[in-house]
Design a protein around this nucleic acid. Sequence first.
DNA 1: GTTCTCACA
DNA 2: TGTGAGAA
Length: 117
Amino acid sequence: MTNNNTSNDVLLDFDLLSRLVVGIGEVSDMTSIPRRKIRYWEEKGIIQSEKDAEGSTRRYNYINIKKVLLIKELLEDGYTLDAAAQKVELRMKSMNETFRQLAKFIDKDLPTNDQKE
DNA sequence: GTTCTCACA
DNA sequence: TGTGAGAA
C-alpha cells in the first residue's frame, strides 16, 4: 500500500490531459451522469464547454470533466447544486492562485533562459 | 449521434 | 433540480 507515485503520473497527466477533449457522450458514460443533466449544469454556468469545429456539439476539456466529477460527488454528499458549484469555484480559484505563485517561484530561480520563440 | 425548446414535476 | 418528448 505504499505510495510510490512520483513523477511518472505527472508526466503522464501533462500530455494526456491536454489532449483529453471529449464530447458529452464520453463524459456522460465516464461519469454515469445523464447527458441531459450535464447540459443542465452547463446552462446554469457551473461548467463550460467549447464547441467543435462545426460549432454544433459540445467538447469538454479535462478541467471541466473534473468539475463534473466534483459536482457529482458533492451532490452525493448532500450539497445543493448551488453549494456544490460554489465549492468547485473556490477550489479552482485557490488552485489557480497556488500554481500561479509556484510558477512565479520557479521562473525566478531557473537559471537556463535560452528559449526563443 | 448531437442540438434546442417547451412543458412538467 | 432535474426529466421527457418532439423536431431539426
